Simulated scan of single mutants.
Amino acid sequence: MEMIQWDEKKYNLEDFIAYWRDYAQKNASWFKKIDDEIKSNPDFHEELAAKINEVIEKALTEPPTEQEMKALDSLIAQLGMDDIDYTCRMEAKYHIERLKEKLTSQS
């Protein structure tokens, strides 16, 4: 989501799936430990997709903490910006990092 700057209009399911496939194959240590025969089994991919969906669901529904909301409010005020809409903790974290970078670059 960070790659599309949390812009739902830019979301593309095929790109998202390709990203996760690439990530699993190159970065997930557990994936390298799985036998190729298992990887070629359609049941494995169904179970993997279900697990990924669980993780995504959790990430997109976990509310931001009070501290994160305060940090965003502070950064928005410091930058003199309009309020930012965010719906979950991951999106809040994205905006916090983005605004911190913006604040640093203005200094």
Rank of each mutant, 00 (worst) to 15 (best):
M1A: 11
M1S: 13
M3C: 05
I4D: 02
Q5W: 10
Q5K: 15
Q5C: 11
Q5D: 12
D7E: 13
E8D: 08
E8G: 09
K10Q: 11
K10T: 02
K10S: 07
Y11L: 14
Y11Q: 05
N12L: 09
N12R: 13
N12W: 06
L13M: 12
L13T: 12
L13R: 15
E14A: 15
D15L: 14
F16K: 14
I17P: 10
A18C: 08
A18Y: 07
A18P: 00
Y19S: 06
W20I: 09
W20H: 11
W20A: 01
W20Q: 09
D22V: 02
D22K: 15
D22E: 14
Y23T: 02
A24C: 10
Q25M: 14
K26I: 00
K26T: 01
N27R: 06
N27K: 06
A28L: 13
S29Q: 06
S29P: 00
S29G: 03
S29F: 10
W30I: 15
W30G: 08
F31S: 11
F31G: 02
K32T: 04
I34T: 08
I34L: 13
I34D: 05
I34Q: 04
I34S: 05
D36C: 06
D36T: 12
E37K: 13
E37D: 10
I38R: 12
K39S: 05
K39C: 04
K39A: 03
S40N: 14
N41E: 02
N41H: 06
P42A: 01
H45C: 08
H45K: 13
E46H: 13
E47H: 03
E47A: 02
E47K: 04
L48A: 12
L48C: 07
A50H: 02
K51F: 12
K51W: 06
K51C: 12
I52H: 03
N53T: 11
N53I: 10
V55S: 03
V55F: 04
I56P: 08
I56W: 10
E57A: 10
E57C: 03
E57S: 11
K58F: 04
A59F: 01
A59S: 11
P63W: 07
P63G: 03
P64L: 07
P64I: 08
T65D: 00
T65E: 08
Q67I: 08
Q67M: 05
Q67K: 09
M69D: 08
M69E: 13
M69F: 00
K70W: 00
L72K: 04
L72H: 07
L72Y: 09
D73Q: 15
S74F: 09
L75N: 01
L75M: 03
I76P: 07
Q78N: 05
Q78H: 09
Q78G: 04
Q78E: 13
L79F: 07
G80L: 06
D82H: 14
D82M: 14
D83G: 15
I84E: 10
I84V: 15
I84R: 09
D85M: 11
D85V: 15
Y86W: 05
T87L: 05
C88P: 03
M90K: 14
M90R: 13
E91G: 11
A92I: 05
K93T: 09
Y94H: 10
H95G: 05
I96N: 06
I96G: 02
E97D: 12
R98Y: 12
L99S: 06
L99G: 03
K100R: 12
E101Q: 13
K102R: 14
K102P: 01
K102C: 09
Q106N: 08
Q106C: 00
S107G: 07
S107K: 13
S107A: 03
